[in-house]
Amino acid sequence: MNELKRAIFLIGSPKGEKSSSASLGNYILNLLKENDIQTNTVHIHSQINTEAKTALFLQNIERADLIILAAPLYVDTLPAKVIKALTLIVENKKKLYSQNITPVKKQSFAAILNCGFPEPEQNKVALKVYKEFAKEAGFNYLGGIAIGMGGLINGKALSEMGGIAKNLIKGLDLAADDLLNNQKISDAAIKKTFKPLISQNWLYTLVGNLNWKFKALKNGIYKKINDKPYT
């Protein structure tokens, strides 16, 4: 019998539903929904700004059997607001524990990371940080998925990305199966999602650099893009 009943999806990007984090997490969430799992999505940046919202956020965490967090890599680790949210969760756990209130069953946690660099390896420190968080919160850590070239997703639904998302989708399908069974994300899922969306890194960086130039041109600041305003 499947023990998983309720999953909460935490979007750790300030861009919310328009983010690559949302695209990745929503893909998994839809697969969970198809298996009759109740789901709830929380955009961290807008849901821990007041005491009332924070209390509701923590209540929702307590009700979940599975917590999935998807966030970008900011300065080699978690975005500030995600650190704040995870700190609140651990503090609340300690408070509940001191009152002898513990969840009926052990909750599980999984992370989905994406970075704008082509190398998914650049997420490795953040992955370790998430594992430490899970340990401190008393969660069963089901592992993490790390994706490079996040700029190519750019908030699009994965189904609209065509062939370049083929391996990513296969990997997320495998990961969703693991999560449904409350099992650690398999090496096969990690390996598939680890594959670059474009096989040549140089092409990704070339397109990336052109994209910045194009946007600067559009904003009328092309000649100022390398400005040094503070020296």
Partner: peptide
């Protein structure tokens, strides 16, 4: 305030 992840500091107001 928290970074908004908008990249405007690169493509709209470079460096700020």
């Amino acid at each position: 305030a928290d970074c908004q992840g908008c990249f405007k500091c690169w493509i709209k107001t470079p460096g700020i």
